[in-house]
């Protein structure tokens, strides 16, 4: 949050020379984001460890960094891969397919066979984020819905809607195609929205 990070051109030679202040700046700039990403993929319990492991991997790989992406994207891709292999290790049955998971965004029962609404969206008693977040109960519903997402959906949602990265960068970080990245994002958003729908009908 303090000084702005120097450009990659300035930073990389300093990092390669072992400049400790440059490392401190780099870690300060991206550690928070890395933790959010790791948490999204492997969960709270392993996020700190994964981030630490990822930084060590960054350090080791830096001399071979070919600059085909920005330093930021490259670092976060290492973090994403570290988190994914940790997830596979912790839950042996999880394949990448399971991480991607393929289901329609909304319950198919909400539509008639001709594609029109069978169960239309209920009216919400809220017009702004403030209205929604004012209810502690609803906040818990949203948190719970995020928690229940498949890991890759949660990662896409976290990076796009909570950390404000752009989609091309996110797809590079998560190593998915742009169309798959958008599917992940949309499924995740739809589930959060559906959870709020459900709450509003209570």
């Amino acid at each position: 949050m303090s000084r702005p990070l120097p450009s990659d051109d300035e930073l990389i030679p300093r990092l390669l020379a072992g400049d400790e202040a440059a490392y401190a700046q780099l870690v300060h700039a991206y550690h928070g984001l890395m933790i959010h990403l790791a948490r999204a993929i492997v969960g709270d319990a392993f996020a700190d460890e994964v981030a630490q492991e990822a930084w060590m991997a960054v350090l080791r790989a830096l001399p071979r960094f070919e600059r085909r992406s920005s330093l930021k994207t490259w670092i976060l891709r290492i973090a994403s891969n570290t988190a994914k292999s940790r997830l596979r290790h912790e839950s042996r049955s999880v394949s990448l397919d399971a991480m991607l998971e393929d289901r329609p965004s909304l319950d198919p029962g909400r539509f008639r066979s001709d594609g029109h609404w069978a169960v239309p969206p209920p009216a919400w008693h809220a017009d702004t984020p403030d209205d929604l977040l004012a209810s502690r109960e609803l906040r818990a519903v949203v948190d719970g819905a995020i928690e229940a997402l498949p890991p890759m959906q949660r990662a896409a949602l976290t990076l796009r809607d909570m950390q404000n990265l752009d989609m091309p960068t996110i797809c590079k970080i998560l190593e998915v195609s742009e169309s798959n990245g958008r599917v992940l994002l949309h499924r995740a958003r739809s589930r959060i929205q559906a959870a709020i729908d459900e709450y509003q009908q209570r």
Partner: peptide, 15 residues
Amino acid sequence: HLRLTIATLHRLPEE
């Protein structure tokens, strides 16, 4: 509602 959901998600990190 989707836009409102997204706007709400944007607010979560600061909350």
